[in-house]
């Protein structure tokens, strides 16, 4: 690395992640507090909602299932946007954001699968159907896990950042194709009956708690994402400090 690039890199280090920390550190406690309040309100709204005439009390599972599934998708969109940021603008925070989002996305996808399964058992009579929507989410979960595995596998941070970004984007391009093909496959094999039961049009009595829970989940995601980004930045600091130490040892 020549002098000029070294200088530029250090300026980037100084400008962005440091400024990010300066903004994030005071914001995180407030966000966390708002998230907790929102979650409590949402929970109260959910449990005071009436029973659905068709689904009975299981509508309670929908209140936490739908937001989880929604966030599973939103998280991947954010990761794809971050991937663009890494590849196009080489923004150091973009990679931090991508890495920080992956485990959260995987966790929400997992929750969507588990709660969906727990809803499916009493409603459909089976834990799992190879329904188009379920299958797509399962594939999304595998993609998340693959990305996490890749991020752990590559040591060199710059290469890891770009590799992750490329795979994320290729996955993003592929998701519509996967969705489409699973739909096709499903209409060929579907024994019917199951999908139609899926989601009847929602009454406002259920819609408001659901939206509130979605809001709370989104806040939760934002808070966790910020906290994880902060950790990732600190992890990089530790790394660069260790390298400095090693270099000084060598020089001495």
């Amino acid at each position: 690395m020549n002098d000029l690039t070294a200088k530029r890199a250090s300026l980037w280090d100084l400008a962005n992640p440091t400024r990010f920390l300066a903004i994030a550190n005071p914001v995180i406690p407030w966000l966390a507090a708002i998230t907790i309040v929102a979650l409590l309100v949402a929970l109260w709204m959910c449990f005071s909602a009436p029973e659905d005439y068709q689904q009975g009390a299981t509508v309670l599972i929908m209140f936490i299932h739908v937001p989880a599934a929604w966030l599973a998708m939103m998280c991947y969109s954010i990761m794809s946007a971050s991937a663009l940021g890494t590849l196009v603008w080489r923004h150091p925070l973009a990679d931090v954001s991508l890495r920080a989002a992956a485990p959260i996305g995987a966790a929400f996808t997992f929750l969507a699968l588990v709660t969906g399964s727990l809803w499916g058992k009493p409603m459909w009579g089976t834990w799992w159907v190879w329904d188009a929507r379920l299958t797509s989410v399962l594939v999304l979960f595998i993609i998340y896990m693959g990305l996490i595995a890749l991020s752990k596998a590559i040591e060199e941070p710059a290469i890891a950042a770009r590799s992750l970004a490329i795979v994320t984007l290729v996955g993003f391009v592929n998701i519509p194709i996967i969705k489409f093909s699973v739909d096709w496959w499903n209409t060929l094999h579907q024994p019917a009956s199951v999908s139609r039961l899926g989601r009847p049009a929602m009454d406002t009595a259920f819609l408001y708690p659901l939206l509130m829970m979605a809001l709370a989940y989104t806040l939760l995601f934002v808070t966790l994402h910020l906290m994880n980004m902060r950790n990732e930045i600190l992890r990089r600091r530790v790394r660069s400090m260790r390298m400095m130490a090693a270099r000084e040892n060598e020089a001495a």
């Binding site: 594939v139 595998i142 993609i143 896990m145 693959g146 990305l147 595995a149 890749l150 596998a153 590559i154 060199e156 290469i159 590799s163 490329i166 795979v167 290729v170 996955g171 592929n174 194709i177 996967i178 489409f180 093909s181 699973v182």
Partner: peptide
Amino acid sequence: AVTVTLARGGLLIAILILPLIIP
């Protein structure tokens, strides 16, 4: 290409590619 720098990337390639190959 993404795993070319890794000593044992074979399994990782399979994990990354399998979901994309489903269609």
